[in-house]
Amino acid sequence: MKKVGLVILVGLFILSCTPRNPENINQVSAVTEFVRSGVQGVDMRFVQNLPPRQIYDTADLFALLELRNLGNYDLGRETFQQCVVQLGGFDPSIIRGINERQSCGDLPGKSEFVVDGGFSTVEFASSSIILPQDVDKYEPPLVATACYEYKTVAAPQVCIDPDFFEITSSQRACDVRDFGLGGGQGGPVGVTYVNVDMVGSRAQFQIEVANLGSGRVVSPRASITQCPGGLRYKDFDEVQFQVELSGARLVRCAPSDQFVRLGDGRGRFVCTFDVGNVPAYETPMRIELNYNYMQSIRTPVEIIRTPE
């Protein structure tokens, strides 16, 4: 009887040590895919009734903003990373004493461990509202603008085939073809299309990127400290890119300064790699996009003079 019990115990132990089954692997893979997809960065919303829709001028104004990093890039964890929220839209000579510009706080991006992304709150308060004489009502929009550094990394699998060996297609490891990437790569700017051309031992990639989010792309050359009020036209719609292809040597990219301008929210750059004389193979290409991003939300507020 003791032997039977021992066998059952050992059996249970062995079962508990069994590696994850394929179903679990699929789940993990799905989570990974989820966290590396999407077109959002920092999502903002005002907490309901903060600020209230209407207040008297003798009351305090209090606004609470919820921030969530729905992209795949951590913000606030490293000192050089910047994410700020600025409350504007109102006349600071009327709504006084607000700490208008604040840090977003620690906002880790979506990951296998924080699937919904990091969360933080920022509060803005004024206890001094002074309506100008003879103004009975003031209706500014309260506009919260988030400016943050962000990075999107896309890693599509590409087929490299210099075609030197001229074997039949059925014997090739892969076929060179253009492909589109939908759904984003965990950031508001993403790769949307990769066009592949083989020219002898060189592979040329035309890569299309787009602003897929609801905000505005700001050049990484512009400082976050200038955002939003100090930005000039030249500071908008520019993305820095870096492309790596494993086992290949980068020959050149165009634009050569590795900054691509977006027109109508879209841009394109071309990178050429020397792949050598090798049979066809499939390999991941790493495309890194660095940019600053600016987005706003607004809520109306109505300040009414207290009847005397």
Binding site: Q86, G88, G89, F90, D91, P92, S93, I94, P132, Q133, D134, V135, Y138, E139, P140, P141, T145, P228, G229, G230
Partner: peptide
């Protein structure tokens, strides 16, 4: 000075 856009009441008597 150059700064972000804002809403303010214009008044005159």
């Amino acid at each position: 000075q150059r700064q972000s856009a804002y809403t303010s009441p214009l008044s005159a008597t």
